[in-house]
Design a protein around this nucleic acid. Structure first.
Lengths: 234, 234
DNA sequence: ACAAAAGTGTTACACGTACACCCATGA
DNA sequence: TCATGGGTGTACGTGTAACACTTTTGT
């Protein structure tokens, strides 16, 4: 994305604002991040976080929504600002202030389609990330840390699952995210006890064992509970 | 602090980076914020958060440390970035990206001295803050929200107390910060059970009741425990 | 009938809550 | 000796941890 800078006036190089977004997904087994492969110098062939420069009269939040929409075709994605990265020499071609976001998407909603877009994006497991262009590895690391903190205190894990999911899927997600295991029975009791999940009649299909019940997160229920001084915690 | 912009070249107005810091303190009874009174338009006579423009080749973290040092004379203050505020029209004189921080200081270390500095800064109780210049009220609100979250999960409350403090002071602080009351006996058991506080021989003095024991937070102890997978939580 | 995962019940124990009580100091 | 807040012990209930067990499906 920074490649575009080359085409722009040098005013942007002396002082640019960009937005980058760490996009998380979950494929049922691993927590994933969306990375793109840079096609140009600097950092040619390095992995990078998707992003773009912010236009002169553009709100950064609009800018990052634009980037995400162009990349994935999705709207109304869960999105939160992480922090700004603004060191003097983070970009070799001139000073750039980057406002970093992270977002959570349902992985089924976006399959990187190599032919659809110029940048080739793909999902990478978070354990496999090692080096990245610029200070993107640092951004990724901080985003992951923040996600781990947030997911314990806010019911945002559901953003990474399909609309309808089983409790086993949910448990698996939390186990991967928090890096520990839960007892099945206790996990169910705790999460169902919160009264945040709406049980559906629908059952899992085409599994070679007893099919699990599907659930749906009920945001209005959560809003109600919040007013009554309820605090999600896992 | 924005007043300085007037003296600078218009390049900064078309695109400036500034740093602002929400400085918290605790006087034993109330959580306080350091506010300055603006002496010039725009927002003349409004309260504002201390801050300044970032120089062309200055790291924002250095910039905010500079501002805090100029204002309070202190160094090595607890400091954390909140987030960036970068809306297009937040500043009437031109686009400014503000990186907001918050910091915690021991209130005894800084008494606003009206004669010592041009800007007159003073401590205000967080309940009394209502309106501020620019979007500073929003910045303040978000900083406070973040502080409330952080203080539950990280042992940073001590940054707001003197080096040596009593358990009653600590309890009071948490009660004001989290907006609830704790049972004295249970609070002590919990906090002392964490093994983070070093009990001193010293006792409280000149109080007209039984003097309380003084404690000191032990950061090295905390570092140790963290390695053993301990997680602070209150 | 078997494997595999869903789903439930039971018990022991740790921890939070509530509250009563004693202690040390200044006036 | 009284008022004030420091400091501690205990009893009770709730919630978490551990684990065994039953259920339902596909092969």
């Amino acid at each position: 994305m920074y490649d575009k800078e080359r085409a722009k006036s040098s005013v942007y190089f002396t002082f640019g604002i960009s937005v980058d977004c760490v996009v998380f997904g979950f494929d049922g087994s691993h927590v994933k991040v969306l990375v793109i492969k840079r096609g140009m110098e600097p950092y040619k062939n390095f992995s990078a976080i998707p992003g773009d420069l912010v236009l002169e009269r553009e709100d950064p939040l609009d800018a990052i929504k634009r980037v995400l929409n162009e990349l994935t075709g999705l709207k109304d994605i869960y999105l939160e600002q992480l922090k700004a990265f603004a060191g003097v020499d983070r970009h070799p071609l001139g000073r750039v202030v980057t406002i970093a976001y992270y977002s959570l998407i349902k992985i089924d909603d976006y399959n990187p389609n190599p032919s659809s877009w110029a940048t080739d994006a793909k999902w990478a497991s978070i354990e496999d990330i090692d080096e990245m262009a610029f200070d993107h590895f640092e951004i990724f690391t901080e985003a992951l840390t923040r996600l781990k903190e947030r997911v314990r205190l806010k019911p945002i894990g559901f953003e990474l699952l399909p609309e309808e999911f089983t409790l086993a899927q949910l448990q698996h997600l939390y186990e991967k995210l928090l890096g520990k295991t839960f007892d099945k029975a206790n996990f169910r009791k705790k999460i169902l006890g919160m009264d945040l999940l709406f049980p559906l009649e629908k059952l899992q299909k085409a599994v070679k064992h007893r099919p699990a019940r599907m659930y749906r997160f009920d945001p209005s229920r959560y809003a109600d509970l919040t007013k009554r001084n309820f605090h999600f915690e896992l």
